[in-house]
Design a protein around this nucleic acid. Structure first.
Lengths: 165, 165
DNA sequence: TGCATGTAGATCTATATCGAACTATATAGA
DNA sequence: TCTATATAGTTCGATATAGATCTACATGCA
């Protein structure tokens, strides 16, 4: 078996595309944000609106699949800019809760507005029907990989599947 | 118009999925690489095999859509590990060329082998037909965004479309 | 109640990423 | 040929990302 193994299946190819698309979309967004703000800042604000306010930093870290230290850093940036407000959690003295401020809402809306020409240009070249068509597949794949991460017994991590909840 | 604008179309949703999938796939890969090596190292080796050897660092930076300083750093890591070999380009005194070494080939093959259980587990939960089905769409989207980046007159970058070449 | 263990977050440190500025070489045009 | 400009790569500095460790609080159980 002297053959050099080709990357198995379409997985490598897909992950390569995903990686590059991630960088391109990130660059597109960040070109429209005020200096000092990056994609994670926008994404967190967006999440606070789309999902809900008042979550803990750890919940946000899990939602974005980043280490909690990274989320601490991102939230500190948002708080410095007055885009979120953080307060101790009365229910749990260890944790905090995070709310978006009016300035944060405005920031998000301005970013979306600033981005709309880019998205329009994109839609002209790549109809959003096609995006809508692949979206459920990508979402499901994300969910599957997300779940695997919490299961993998080979990974020096989590206890076996949470039996309750 | 007091309505808060919802993220327009499916674009935001797709980019969110892409971002998270990027992180998850990167984590999956890096968990199987020897310490000190990261996804970019693997990706460059893979590219040198899949596409071709002997490219310049700048060509690699463009292929991966990263700044050239980042590629310098990645290549330095690969060279330190003996996985690539770099030599001046006799055709152009400014540039270098990059070749993968035997150790680099072995490294890539071992990484692929180490990853195959993960990919098998993934395939069990998410058939690769479905991956193959979305792959062309994602590849085309990447190509479109790639092209836009080199065109965008609104971006404080490139001169208008290269007329020659 | 008291102790063992687990969890949320912060701090410290290392490294990845990337922009600005620099050096050396190449290329185009007078 | 000479000069202006462009390009390849590096260096330097700033910041993002993330692992290890620490502190404070929570939870479970004797």
């Amino acid at each position: 078996m002297p053959d050099s193994p080709p990357p198995p299946g379409p997985w490598f190819a897909l992950f390569t595309e995903i990686g590059i698309l991630g960088q391109l979309s990130r660059a597109m967004l960040e070109a429209r944000l005020p200096p000092g703000f990056l994609q994670p800042h926008f994404s967190v604000l967006n999440h606070l609106i789309r999902v809900r306010d008042g979550q803990t930093p750890l919940a946000l870290a899990r939602a974005f699949q980043v280490p909690k230290t990274t989320m601490t850093h991102t939230l500190a940036g948002l708080e410095r800019g007055g885009l979120v407000r953080m307060a101790p959690n009365p229910r749990d003295g260890r944790s905090k809760r995070v709310w978006i401020t009016d300035a944060g809402r405005a920031f998000r809306e301005e970013a979306i507005a600033a981005l709309s020409p880019d998205l329009a240009a994109l839609t002209a070249r790549f109809p959003s029907d096609r995006v809508a068509a692949v979206l459920p597949v990508m979402a499901e794949l994300r969910a599957v990989m997300d779940a695997m991460r919490d299961e993998d017994p080979d990974d020096p991590a989590q206890p076996p599947p949470p039996l309750v909840r």
